[in-house]
Design a protein around this nucleic acid. Sequence first.
DNA 1: CTGTTAGCGCTTTCAA
DNA 2: TTGAAAGCGCTAACAG
Lengths: 345, 345
Amino acid sequence: MRKNSARRPTILDVAERAGVSKTVVSHALSGKRPVSEETRRRIFEAIADLGYQPHPLAQRLAGGRTGIIGFAYPLVTPRIANLEMKIIAGAANVLNQENYDFLLLTHTAPGHANLRRVVQSGLVDGVILLQVRMEDPRIDILRQADIPFVLFGRCADNTGLIYVDMDVEYAMRQCVAHLAELGHQYIVYFYQDDRGFGLVERALAGFASACDAYHLTSETLPCGISPEAGAAAILTLLEHHPRTTAVIFWTDIAAWGAYQALQERGIRVPEDLSLICFDRSTVDALGAFRPTAVDIRAEESSAQAARMLIALLNNEPLEATQVLIQPYFIAGESTAGAPTNPSRR
Amino acid sequence: MRKNSARRPTILDVAERAGVSKTVVSHALSGKRPVSEETRRRIFEAIADLGYQPHPLAQRLAGGRTGIIGFAYPLVTPRIANLEMKIIAGAANVLNQENYDFLLLTHTAPGHANLRRVVQSGLVDGVILLQVRMEDPRIDILRQADIPFVLFGRCADNTGLIYVDMDVEYAMRQCVAHLAELGHQYIVYFYQDDRGFGLVERALAGFASACDAYHLTSETLPCGISPEAGAAAILTLLEHHPRTTAVIFWTDIAAWGAYQALQERGIRVPEDLSLICFDRSTVDALGAFRPTAVDIRAEESSAQAARMLIALLNNEPLEATQVLIQPYFIAGESTAGAPTNPSRR
DNA sequence: CTGTTAGCGCTTTCAA
DNA sequence: TTGAAAGCGCTAACAG
């Protein structure tokens, strides 16, 4: 029925032409078994003559692996930004380079139907989980499916889990230490108003303990991630926490909004108020604002997660199963010594 | 040998549990053959009980589909940004919602080895091609593989191709018309210094013909996509093209750099110089700069491309095979009437 | 060092 | 309306 002319050659064609069995061809290709010099020569000759290419799907089906890695990253439209892009590119580039395919799962159906379907179908060899929550139901799904996975983030209980995460406690300590050295006494942290995420919770805890360690008076206030939210937050601060001399924002975008609002009111940064933010991806793209910040090394981190998963799949020993990335502290232009007279209005 | 407990259920497990043969299960699922009501009920019950999911690779190998769509998008690290993210999210969200999987191919090996491998193996049912060039060798690869695909962009010759692209000629005409109405006579377009891409070439052509139509004196100059490049470009302009009263930038990022440079020199936008840019994704995220701009509707467009490909795969008739998205012209704060005395230095 | 023979999990004739 | 059986192209026991 099928036209013999337009058929791509299979391993059997190669075997026949070389006068050997499929098996030998397979092993000549994979090197998983020794093949005599003479035989291998004939085989490769046949391969060249025929223009044979192994069929990846068949290889994968027979070999029990698909070479595809799932990347579970809910991408809510209004929030998509530079940072997310770095995270995706970091992992995708590493995986594609290693001849793995990168399957992006963005949709969050109720019950994580999408993730379920993908892992239960056996489509992916492993999964990288993004936006990890302190209690994350997706972990049960992956464990039950008995599929290797790496978290980009951490849970509350991380026993037996493999992860890459930012050392946010360390980052917070650096920020607070920096401010303490500059003589600030009253500082405020505008946390991301999105509880339950590992990063958010740990940032809060880290802030509290760092402030304790440095004997600073501190306050935490919720703040959205838009410039408007940042602006609104800073105005609240001016009104209700006038003694504050330094603030920490979760995102550069909110920080930028705050910065703008302050400028409009003639409040100088850093002379009147110091400001630090986490991640500078977006403001860096524009280069307009060079705040003191924490570089969370997003692209590197997701690349690292990808490499760990690959190692896991190859049964290579991992150097470490739980990796904390030390962020870089960037001394920028938005922090300075605490003003002697904080009442600036 | 294999532990029966930790094995994914196969179609055979479902068949046994429902007391039928594999064949019936397959057809109950695909609907390619009638199945009695009672039988299908038992089958779906078994599927639910077992948590069965068909294996996409096996389906494909046996002649079916994988439900995976490839998204060929070279993601060069330094360029990744908001716009790219919108494009990815737009398509990924649509596809995931329709139960298609989204395979992101970012790596550009020489000869497009990655794309070749993926399409020739049949891993993906269809492909969306990004960063389309006027002459794009990937199209031959896809045609030879006889795989359905949709371009996000256009080539020089689009015969028989299916695409979604921005109507950049229209956009340019709007920009130029806007400037002409404001009385500008000498305008400059800073094109993306990256020839060969459909969008870049068409933008240049569209600019030229629009300027002709409105009898404007015009010039095109190359410009990179960073704020620094924008700043450098505008300084060159001031020096060599002093009579210019309006400029068009390809990206908001470069436009922002230019805007900053102008401010530093006391040149006012729009009083002294009008400015328009394509896409506002990044500056919009920060809300600092509200230029007159062209909203290229990136997220919508890539979602549209995804929907077209799905229709194609389902053999549904397409309303249109070559879709030009009309960008939105946004009258912002960076354009005004031409200054009467353009020599502002 | 080489070959035989089961599968991998599914679709699809062909026959009932 | 259903089932048996032959592949899809490859890998991996197992046996020489």
